[in-house]
Structures are given as C-alpha cells and as structure tokens.
Design a binder for these strands. Structure first.
Lengths: 347, 347
DNA sequence: CTTAGCTGGGAAAAGGTTTTCTCAAATAGG
DNA sequence: CCTATTTGAGAAAACCTTTTCCCAGCTAAG
C-alpha cells in the first residue's frame, strides 16, 4: 500500500499524561500527583500509575511545565569569543553546574554586532530563559548589547559588567603574584615582565602586582615591556631585554602563553637555556601552547571552569529568589608548574 | 513602608496578549489575528491593535506558541569537542543559518561520558527541540550517545553518523589534492607527507589523495610518515626526511598545522629556508597557529562554518517536513595561501 | 445514631497563544 | 421589501501539565 520511493521517517506522537491516566484508569490530576509525589492516594494506585508511565515511556512536556511554572529551566549564554578560547571552559563549568538541575544552555555568539546581540537577547527573552550569563574574551570590554533592566537576572562572567550587577572575574593581580612569588622562591633575582597592549586593563593589574611583589622582596623593578599578545612580540621583547649588556634577567614573567612561547624560542636561539639560565612563566595555561613549548611552559591558570561553575550556581540561586549582593567577585588563579621555570635547588 | 536593607530587583510581569486585547478593546482572538496577519477585520482595527501591542512592548510567549504548534524553534547541538577547536566554527555556521528563522541552539558538551550524553539528549527531548545536530572532534568516531530512533530529525556534522542518517563531513581527500596539486603547479618535485596517527580515517584519506596526485603528475611517491598530531612529531619527522643523504624533499604537506609548525621550526634550525628550499602546507587552517609560524603557513581550510550552515539549513528543511536523502555529503575544502609554500616563478 | 474528621480521588482553572467555528450586522441582489 | 452573501469580530477548544478546591465515602468519637 505505502509508496516506498522515498522512505520518510515518521515520528510517533509523544505520549502525554492523558495517555498515562487513561491507561491506568485514573484522572490526569491523579496521574500527575502520582508521578510528582504529591497528593494523597493508596501506595498501590501510585505505583500502578508509575508503572504505566514507565511502560509507556512517558516524559512530561517541558514546555507545558514551563508555561505553568513560569520557569523554563533554560539559561542563555552570550559571548563574543568566536574561537571559544575563554568562553568554552566557562561554558563547560556553567553547563556542569546546571545540568544536574535539569537546566539547559542556549549559546549565542553575538560577535561585535549590536544587531545580532539584540536579536539573540530578544529570542532568549521570548523563550523565557530563567536568566542570562554574559561572557566575553576580555574583562574590560562590554558585549555589544544592553542587558540592563531585563526581565530576568543577569550575571557577568569574564566580561565588563554593568554597574550594580553581579559579576565574576579572575583575580589577575593574584595570578601575577603567584607567578612572580614563585620566581622569588626559586631564587631568581632579576625578573622581567613582558605583556600585551596597554589598552587591556589586565595588563595594568598584572604589571602592578609584578611591581608590588618585587618591591616586597627587595628586588629591582624594571618597567614591564608592553606590546601585543603575539609570539612575535615575545621574540622581539627578548632582544630588548638581552641586548643591553648588563643586568640581564634570569626570569621572564609573560602576559600570556603565546608571548612566553616567543620568549622561549628567542632565548633558545640566543643559546640561553630555559630554565637553566632564564626561567619563564606564562599566563592563561592554554594547554595546546603550554605543552608544545620546549620545555613545557609553567603558566597561570585562571580557573575558568570553576569561574563558570560559580557563575552558574549564583544565577541559579538568583533565579530561585535568593538575593545576591551586586559587585565584582574575583576568583583566585592557580599556578600550573611545568618545566620552564626551574625548580628549587634542593627539589 | 518597604524595607530597603537589601534591594531585591523586582521583575515586572510580562505583558500578555490578553493585556493587549483588553487595552485595545477587542477579544484575544482578534488581537492574535491582528498581530499575525490572519483573519478578517478592518485595516483600522488591525492597526489599532498593533499600535497597542507596540506601546505595551508585547512579545508573544514562545512557550505557549511552541506548545500549540508542536514546534519549539529550538535545536540541540551535541559535541564532545571540549576545546571547541572544530565545534565552535560549526556552531557559528549553524547559529548563523538558524538565527534568522528565530531558532536558538542548545549547546551540550557530552565529553566521552555516555551518562552525560543520555542526560543531555533526554533534556533536549523533554524541551521539545525540533531537531538535533551531532558534531565531534573527529569524523571517524561516534559520540558516546545513541541517536537512532529519536522522536526528532538528527543530522551529523563532522562526526561519525549512524547508517541511513544525513551527514556532512569535509572532503579531506579533496583538501589534500588541493595542497599537493598546488605544490605541483609551483614546480615542486619531491613532495613529502607527514601526518597524524594511523588510527584516524582522515589520515588514510589524505594520504591516498597525496599518492594519487603524485602518480597523476608522474612524481615519485614516498610513503607518508605517520606519527602524532603534535609539533614535536613534525620536528622529529624532519629528521627522518632530511637525514638520508639523497632525494631530500623540496615540499612537505602536513596533516595539521601543529605538525607543520614543528616542521617549519625544524627546517629553520637546519638552516633550510621556507619556502625557498622547502615549501610547507598545513591542514586545518587554525589561524592562531598558521599566522604565528614564520613565515605564515599556507593551509587547507575545511570550511567548517559553511559546513555548519549547510547542516543547519538541512535540519531546518527536515523539520519542515521536506525529506532529505540519507547519506554522507562531502563539502569541499579550500586552500588558504600564505607564504610558506612559495609562489609561482613568474608571480 | 449523629457529627467531625480523614481518605482517596476527581473536576476545573490556570498558564498564553492559535485556530476553527459561530453569529450578528451590513451589504448586495432581485 | 425580502433573501442571500459577505464582513467583522468573538467564543471556545486545543496544546499539556500542575494545583487548588471539592466531594463522596468511611472511620472514630461522643
């Protein structure tokens, strides 16, 4: 009978609570209560309904539930980090924190396009997300989208927040301290700092921490060398640091892993041993880079997964009605020690 | 009256169609029809209702619409690519194709965990996604999750599909041809191939294309060197290729950009000029790597964004009831020429 | 035996929208 | 002036689930 030229897959109608109730010979109200551990009924009735639901493969329609509860168990994640260098670890942590609560995440890349941002935010709101997390690729820039006075709670993670918002960022100064203090403990005395462009707020935060730690340890402070975030700049910076005849550094703290990579390569080209002659520490702990340097790179990890988890949990409690004090929370970084920084003499 | 210790943001109730109707002095039915260009009414009534909706900032509740239409304008994207190296460009293309149709994307990372996969798929189904796109980090491995006989259409992109499914992958053989033929056109005669582990299907596809092109051009075929996907392996492979005294390659086609990076660095260490003495082409066109090599790396781009867009559009038409022939569609790659491969003598 | 209280379960409303059907008024046709 | 048709708009059902209220029957207390 059926024409089989083009077998079109046919998707069966989902089984509804009504089906379960009919099959079990009860009303939908009773069925609902049985499955949700609500109401009063004999244990026998409850179990019979549950068994029926199981055997029919019943799954409640989330849309209907959401409509009724005014809660969709859905959050939106906005980002402008196309390559996901920072937002994917964040996403991972967020998802991790939420999946056990049955919450799913809409991911939207808004690039730098306000129109796109507007579009995505409206789509999220229309779909009644319970909340929104905004994230980006740098801490000191806004997303190209206005998230003030939305109908839902908003949390900022690793991006510039609106005033009076709840935000999570990494403690860059703390991370820098970790690196420089590690050098100090290892007995390095002339520690240089090569970082990215002055237009980045984190560059200044890290540089100040660098100066502070050196001062605290009575070590000479040389002005940080600012350039770009690239390997090429790391390469070039080594020339600046080592072409002067005296006071050559015995350690370089770099603003990111790519710069560190350039520094290490340039040092090798000059015949300097890492970590023997010069120790190097990077920032970001981008494993794909940190593990490809020779020797493998010690680097500051911003704990983005943990940051994402924290943001997710906070959003959840905000959605649940718990107030959260506005303000920026800085989460600690962690030093991942590999081989580029050297080790304690006795180690 | 109000206690202001802790200013809790209060979120206003969304305005509903009922509100609009009441304000405009019509029934909700009429209001709905006015806003959707349905039904019959005087142009004046229609415009009055629209104006009311605008002034009230009315936005239809997507949940209610979805419930009724049995269509949620939502799709799920499954991946196990934690770093997003491949899935983010895909995601970008998918999102691109869908956002204009008001469709949002749930992104779920299932890692390698079947339990997590099951969890996410069930959450998606409960939320009544219109369809699912499965993607991964390699073409020849399944996600740790069973997507057969779901209640919704499924499309595979850049991951191993179930039989009889619709799938999109990159044409790796074609991409390899592009690279090797380019070398041939440039007059290179001894072209080597350094690639990843033999356990990857793409390694064989690319290697075969490499042999084919060399044979077609009457050039000597040396067996591809298989190793790992790392820079270190690229480095090591150069030793194998150049320590033999004769028939040293004048071109190396690499299985990915990291290998290419290792090859280029090793060549430089040997005093060989790239592209003067040896041309190098990579695969993946991972810009962050390709642009950091010196000289910048020519590489095969798998057009993942386009692949994602194609997958998104196909899923959309599948959801719309258009049948799509099952099978694997290979989408062409593209060669991004930078400086590592050299140029035509007359160029 | 009467009344209060409990028990098991159902009816109905609510959530917000779309769509089909119905109906009164207005218009056209004869 | 009377009937047939069109026009404008509303009532109600449907989507699926949850929750509040209600009720009939039963038990226990007085």
């Amino acid at each position: 009978m059926a024409s089989d030229d083009q077998p079109v897959p046919v998707f069966p109608k989902p089984v509804t609570l009504r089906d379960v109730a009919a099959r079990a010979g009860v009303s939908v109200a009773t069925a609902s209560k049985a499955l949700n551990d609500q109401g009063r009924m004999t244990a026998e009735t409850r179990e019979r309904i549950r068994e029926t639901a199981r055997s029919l493969g019943f799954r409640p329609n989330s849309l209907a539930q959401s409509l009724l509860r005014r809660r969709s168990f859905t959050v939106g994640l906005l980002t402008n980090d196309t390559y996901g260098r920072f937002s994917l670890p964040l996403m991972s942590g967020i998802s991790d924190a939420l999946v056990d609560n049955g919450v799913s995440v809409f991911l939207c890349n808004v690039e730098e396009d306000p129109r796109l941002g507007q579009l995505h935010v409206e789509a999220m709101l229309d779909k009644r997300v319970d909340g929104i997390i905004a994230t980006g690729k740098r801490i000191d820039r806004h997303l190209p989208v206005d998230l003030a006075d939305l109908r839902v709670p908003v949390i900022y993670a690793f991006t510039q927040p609106d005033p009076d918002a709840v935000a999570f960022v990494s403690d860059d100064a703390g991370g820098a301290r970790l690196a420089v203090e590690h050098f100090c403990r290892l007995g390095r005395r002339r520690i240089a700092h090569v970082s990215g462009p002055a237009s980045f707020a984190v560059v200044h935060a890290r540089a100040q921490a660098y100066r502070d730690v050196l001062a605290e340890n009575g070590l000479p402070v040389t002005e940080p060398l600012l350039g770009s975030w690239s390997e090429a700049w790391g390469h070039e910076a080594v020339a600046h640091l080592f072409d002067g005849k005296r006071d050559r550094p015995d350690a370089v703290f770099c603003g990111n892993d790519q710069i560190a990579r350039g520094v290490i390569d340039a040092l090798r080209e000059r015949g300097l041993d890492v970590p023997g002659d010069v120790g190097v520490i990077g920032f970001d702990n981008w494993e794909i880079v940190a593990e490809a340097t020779r020797p493998p790179l010690t680097s500051v990890d911003m704990n983005l997964v943990a940051l994402g988890r924290e943001a997710g949990l906070t959003l959840l409690s905000l959605v649940g009605g718990q107030p959260a004090a506005p303000g920026i929370r800085q989460l600690p970084c962690r030093l991942v020690v590999r081989q580029s920084c050297g080790r304690l003499p006795d180690g």
